[in-house]
Write a protein that binds this DNA or RNA. Structure first.
Length: 490
DNA sequence: TAATATT
């Protein structure tokens, strides 16, 4: 049967309907009908959809309530991964209302633990300004208890106690009122005014996090979960923008390696997450001023005429700059403190090192798009010092693994030492050696190193996942170490 | 004390 695609939905030929008000919602052109929707149609959010169901699978379930104008399963922008939810617009408003009352929380799709969600999408003027987060509830308080507590302030549209997998309350809840004013009234009367049995402090009633706040919260959680980078974390402490950023990268890499057997797509996901985190920063929440100490509009550490080269003495967050190498004052400091300055130019309005880090990344992306270009373009030349370094160090105390197991890693962060390099590649297999090359005179990292695995497939997995992996303004270059006899430059 | 997800 011939079909025509409209709004991404397959429409059958010659189909034409009217809604309950008698309005046409199909425009017939020749044999095809282009669907029209009511001007007051409602876009529905559909949640708790099994991830193996696509539009064509969902259509029959929803067509029962009227003609569908548009049905879109949400996919991840970068990976195409099914997000487990969808948007649905019926041609007729009434169809949406019928579907909502018939389906919302009324049935559970196969393989799901919770009932399907069918409700107006957030985009339908139903923002989150009416939704409260309620903390410090007693663990035994149910949805009903919470409702009773809040119903005096207005119409409650939703009330959910957060629970773990075992059904035990997490001691907090979301309560959505029908208006912002009602929610505000509840805050005024309830926040901090009483302590629930078993709670460690008084009741918390506040507006729920926005998306951006939620993203930030997650970033913090992730950063906190990784007790990695022991020396750097300690050293950088409150100035931890860089090390936090690295942690995030590590987290992403770890996820790539451990949560999915397909390393390549997971690396894409990890990269996508970082991009999203960076992107959300510029969009108004953070507004970290990159006050350059030089007084120019150029990011610190880079002079106005220089192309941002890999050798640029530039911290990942755009704040730190290394001291000039020509100062002739090598130090004996450990590498992770060497040349890294705290950030005296921090804006007093910026308190979050993560925000700084991601803002810095984004500023760089904007100022120097070349750094975000494909690797081959971003890094047109390779330093020629590598063969020297190999001669100098490699055979002495860097025993390589078997052929095909040794990786060359370039564009490491300045602060990375052997331990950090090792940590970064452990997820891909047994690392038998990890060596960052260090300048003997200055004791500074040369920003490249070698990693050896005990088998070639680990090495390949690491290349797949980590080559091109973005850390701050740089992308890692990860490739098999050149055999000794190969003498061509990069 | 922050969820299963909102183009």
């Amino acid at each position: 049967m011939a079909t025509v695609t409209v709004n991404g939905v397959l429409q059958e030929n010659g189909f034409s309907t009217t809604n309950s008000a008698g309005r046409m919602n199909g425009l017939t052109i020749g044999q095809n009908t282009i669907p029209m929707k009511d001007h007051d149609a409602i876009k529905l959010f559909i949640g708790q959809i099994p991830r193996n169901l696509e539009e064509k699978d969902l259509k029959p379930l929803f067509e029962e309530f009227g003609k569908i104008y548009e049905l879109t399963v949400l996919k991840d922008r970068f990976t195409g991964m099914h997000k487990g939810c969808a948007f649905l617009t019926y041609c007729a408003r009434e169809s949406a209302l019928k579907a909502q009352s018939a389906l919302h929380e009324q049935k559970t799709l196969p393989g799901m633990n919770r009932p399907i969600q069918v409700k107006p999408a957030d985009s339908e003027g139903r923002g989150e300004d009416r939704k409260l987060f309620v903390g410090m509830l007693g663990k035994q308080q149910s949805e009903e208890d919470v409702r009773r507590l809040f119903e005096t302030f207005g119409q409650i549209e939703e009330c959910t106690v957060l629970r773990g997998p075992d059904g035990a309350s997490k001691g907090c809840a979301f309560v959505k009122f029908s208006s912002h004013a009602e929610a505000q009234a509840a805050i005024n009367s309830l926040h901090g005014r009483q302590t629930m049995p078993g709670a460690s402090s008084s009741l918390v009633v506040k507006f729920a996090d926005t998306d951006k706040e939620r993203t930030l919260r997650r970033m913090h959680q992730m950063a906190g979960q990784l007790g990695i980078f022991s020396p750097m974390t300690i050293q950088f402490g409150a100035y931890g923008a860089y090390s936090h950023a690295q942690m995030m990268q590590q987290q992403a890499a770890l996820m790539a390696a451990t949560q999915n057997s397909y390393l390549n797509p997971m690396a894409a996901i990890a990269a996508a997450q970082m991009q999203q985190m960076a992107a959300f920063n510029v969009n108004g929440l953070v507004a970290a001023p990159m006050t350059p100490s030089s007084g120019t509009s150029t990011p610190p550490g880079i002079n106005a005429t220089a192309v941002p080269s890999l050798a640029a003495p530039m911290g990942v967050n755009g704040f730190a700059s290394l001291p000039p190498q020509t100062n002739g004052q090598p130090t004996n400091e450990p590498i992770y403190t060497n040349g890294i300055h705290p950030y005296p130019a921090q804006s007093p309005t910026v308190t979050d090192p993560l925000q700084q880090a991601y803002a810095g990344v984004q500023h760089y992306a904007a100022a120097y798009p070349a750094a975000y270009a494909p690797i081959s373009q971003a890094f047109p030349q390779q330093p020629t010092i590598i063969p020297q370094q190999q001669r100098e160090v490699c055979c002495c105390y860097f025993p390589p693994g078997p052929e095909g197991c040794n990786l060359f890693i370039y564009h490491l962060p300045q602060e990375f030492g052997d331990a950090e390099l090792m940590q970064m590649f452990l997820p891909f297999g047994n690392v038998i050696s990890a060596k960052v090359f260090v300048d003997r005179a200055t004791n500074q990292s040369k920003c490249f190193g070698f990693v050896s695995f005990d088998n070639p497939s680990s090495a390949q997995a690491a290349i797949q996942a980590m080559n091109g992996f973005q850390i701050g303004m740089k992308r890692l270059k990860v490739q098999l170490k050149r055999p000794k006899d190969a003498n061509r430059p990069y």
